[in-house]
Design a protein around this nucleic acid. Sequence first.
DNA 1: AATGAATGAGTTTTCATTCAT
DNA 2: GATGAATGAAAACTCATTCAT
Lengths: 218, 218, 218, 218
Amino acid sequence: MHDTETQNNHAFIANARRTQIFHAAIRTLDEIGYVRASLAQIAKRAQISTALISYHFKDKEDLMNYILMTVLANTTTFVLQHTNAAQSARAKLQAYIVAHLMYQDTHQDAYHALVEIIFNARTPDDVPYYKLNNEEDDPLRRELQDILHHGQQQGEFRLFSVAVVATAIQGAIGEYWVNPHLAITINAVAYAEELVHLFERAVLCDAHGDQADTQMDC
Amino acid sequence: MHDTETQNNHAFIANARRTQIFHAAIRTLDEIGYVRASLAQIAKRAQISTALISYHFKDKEDLMNYILMTVLANTTTFVLQHTNAAQSARAKLQAYIVAHLMYQDTHQDAYHALVEIIFNARTPDDVPYYKLNNEEDDPLRRELQDILHHGQQQGEFRLFSVAVVATAIQGAIGEYWVNPHLAITINAVAYAEELVHLFERAVLCDAHGDQADTQMDC
Amino acid sequence: MHDTETQNNHAFIANARRTQIFHAAIRTLDEIGYVRASLAQIAKRAQISTALISYHFKDKEDLMNYILMTVLANTTTFVLQHTNAAQSARAKLQAYIVAHLMYQDTHQDAYHALVEIIFNARTPDDVPYYKLNNEEDDPLRRELQDILHHGQQQGEFRLFSVAVVATAIQGAIGEYWVNPHLAITINAVAYAEELVHLFERAVLCDAHGDQADTQMDC
Amino acid sequence: MHDTETQNNHAFIANARRTQIFHAAIRTLDEIGYVRASLAQIAKRAQISTALISYHFKDKEDLMNYILMTVLANTTTFVLQHTNAAQSARAKLQAYIVAHLMYQDTHQDAYHALVEIIFNARTPDDVPYYKLNNEEDDPLRRELQDILHHGQQQGEFRLFSVAVVATAIQGAIGEYWVNPHLAITINAVAYAEELVHLFERAVLCDAHGDQADTQMDC
DNA sequence: AATGAATGAGTTTTCATTCAT
DNA sequence: GATGAATGAAAACTCATTCAT
């Protein structure tokens, strides 16, 4: 009992610390970028010593992986919640795009941190993280491909290369925040709606707007 | 005469060195990424001393900017050649997408280096390079927007937010090489053709394939 | 309690290190001069790593300023102790000259280090440290001028430009150790006594040695 | 004949270059100090290549020695001209002090350069240049000591340690330009006159101003 | 006579990490 | 659990000097 309590207590403290470091690291990555985001800079923002980071994370790599996986998991959870709530493939696609952009919009610092890590970190054998992106490991990518596949099977979507369209959609979503000028004229939600319209025209069987019911091109 | 010869000779040598360093730097960025791409690593690949890099480039920043601008300029030249050769907006759009992906495909190391720089380098006041991406400075982006605009004015394209569609297209193009699995199943040219089809459906007035002549949705 | 103890302990260790580095730096400056006094050379003499110096001092500049200020403060304290103990202006002047030279004599390495720094270091805008020498900031200089002023007001000293005489005295004191041949034939104390005699003749109202009581030239 | 002409020509050019480099080096030392006065900086100011400096001077040390000796020789020539023109020891002493300060005043950059070198350069066995200052090698110092000696032998000056007084005078002269505040309130000539008065009181047999003819204290 | 090209040695500084306390 | 102290490795950069031309 006592032992278990103590253990729980320790785990609780450790967890709180990890979370604190996590947030400080995200802020750091957002503010000064991956290259200059040293443990010292992160520790300064967390108002702790650098040694404490080393205590809670095996490595700098370990910390970065933790951030990466946590942010990815949060994003995935959020997006899947919305796609699961939708019924038709079309509705799911819309939900996917909108939810994805909304999440990015409401968690900008985390998203920037994610990008910094993905485009900077490399495995010990120098494979860039962005090349690790694949269906097996990334549930978001899998969900998107599932939606497209399903839509084709249900006759909602025309035939196309699922991999290509999925890639195009991911690229279109991710490109939004890269263009600061765009973000000024059009907010994330409006951008999402435009994208939805764009890709519905591209994938729906009949492109004549909302009344699409005949499937001659499917 | 003699002086001019000497000068030319010197300029030639200097240029050759800069090119040599340029290629070594691209290889380095491609192989081990921006973070670990120290002058020492670049010098090792160029089989020269680090001091010689400092001799030909004021700064590491200077070298990186040189690479960035050179690769961008080459890409731009190549793509514009193809878009200029096309007549209709639709043909220009196709040329843009295909040429862009072809260039990436045939200069993969340079493209990877470009990405490494864009997503890692920051201005002295910590603004990431990828946020400097805008119409005024990037002729490729401008060309794409011009094509879309023109297409709308000519009645070839339906009405849509030019900025959004341009962003989506850029994102879709750039995402290709990020997904190594994709690159295995489908090569760059095939990917380009699929994208062309995708975006033509999305932007052409009548989406019923090639016979589009009535403009009821324009 | 425990916390306070720990803090004190840390402060003690840190202080000891700073002192150790301080002495190693003085030895280095004395032995090989400012130009060659790299952090590596200082670290070697302190038998620590160069990084440890950077850990305890923000900068090389920071370290040099610390040495400068410490040695100046020590010198000032020592000299003022002696001048304060004296009553008449004449006695104070004598105390000033003798104490100054004695301190130099017993702290030769520190004094040499001081000279190395003053004549080599420059502010970020390239103003040499030796040009920063002024009454407001240098309490020793101020004390000397006060003594001279006071002597004039009390009628002990004749009228002369205080600034000029103060400068002459400082120059005469500082020049001693510059001349190694002199140091062989005459020690610091004897030099001091000669200087006292010299400047007393120069500033006392009546120059006929010790019996000066008439003040016809004051 | 022809050979000699060619030789002369070469010598002439070489001499002109050395002079050009000499002046550029003085400017550099004055502006940015010994530590930062690299060959590159000097070459930049002379608008030549660094290699050319290495061509005309064996070493950086060689260049610095050249500057040192040239400036010293010029100063010596100027001062000796004035002391030689004077008759009495007293007049010679006055000439010495005034000429010395005047020369410094009219060649401030050269004088600053001199100071930079003397207080920074070291022999290969790390002996600072300022410790090489001695009677045998420095004709100015010798002249000053000769004046004082002669004055004592002639009965103009009282008995004192020639070495000490010479050192004091040199120190007082050299200290002038170290104090920038002083230079603002009182110019070099005025300072010189004050010094003359000061040291005449100190060394003349009878200190009662100008009517000194009785030698009871000699 | 003069220079651009090139380098090895050495500079300060920052970094991730370890360890005793 | 937490920290200050400490370090070796590596970073970018500068320098005086040499050499072919």
